Amino acid sequence: MAEHLILSHITKAERYAELLPQLKALVSYERNAVANMANIASALRMAFGFFWVGFYLVEGQELVLGPFQGDIACTRIPCGRGVCGTAWAKAATQLVPDVEAFPGHIACSSSSRSEIVVPIKDAQGQVLGVIDVDSDQLDDFDEVDALHLEAIAELVAQCLR
């Protein structure tokens, strides 16, 4: 797994299903959370060709940029602001088919058209950070992405303990 992913199925759900055990195997050999998040971001981008994928971690009343793959990003996001801050404040996945229609959207890149943000929660439900995935296509994410990215968020939460 260190150099490539094995992904043979063509549907999105099948691709996620193949990816998750490979991610679990990858992080099982590394204790450093930053290294694990970096590899997870890379694997997600490789597997799906996402425009941008990365992590923001809670620090006080802000989310601070963590490991990511893609263009330069916003460094700090206040709680409740933008899609990421809203996912944190509501402790719920935010599925945004058109970022221009999302009130208070923070445009880190003008190429971003749709977005999904999934909170990373500890065992008590407290948000530790978020997984942020952007697409340069409108309406590119759905409930399949939400379901599987939530499972990946649980894996990341284990890495952050």
Rank of each mutant, 00 (worst) to 15 (best):
Q137P: 09
T75G: 13
D98H: 02
C74V: 09
T86H: 14
G54H: 14
A92N: 03
A47W: 01
W88C: 02
A107R: 11
H105V: 04
S42Y: 13
L128S: 12
L65H: 03
K121G: 01
E62K: 09
L57W: 05
G49I: 00
Q126V: 12
G80N: 01
E115K: 14
I77P: 12
A89C: 06
P97W: 13
V127P: 01
D140R: 14
V53H: 08
C84W: 03
I106N: 00
I106V: 03
N32R: 12
F50Y: 12
D134Y: 14
I120S: 13
I40W: 06
V58H: 03
K90S: 14
V96K: 15
A43M: 10
M37C: 15
G66M: 12
G129V: 08
D136A: 00
I131K: 02
H105M: 10
R81M: 10
F68I: 15
D132K: 02
T75W: 07
F48M: 05
E59P: 00
S42W: 15
T75D: 15
S114L: 07
A43Y: 01
S111F: 13
H105Y: 05
V127G: 00
P103L: 04
F51R: 12
R31I: 11
S42K: 14
S112D: 03
G82N: 02
A101C: 14
V83C: 02
I77E: 04
A41T: 13
A107M: 11
V83I: 15
Q61R: 09
D136I: 00
P119S: 08
D134C: 07
P103H: 13
A87E: 01
V64K: 15
C74F: 11
N36W: 06
L95V: 01
V96M: 01
L44V: 10
P103Q: 09
I116K: 03
G54C: 02
F102G: 07
K121F: 09
D71Q: 14
C108H: 13
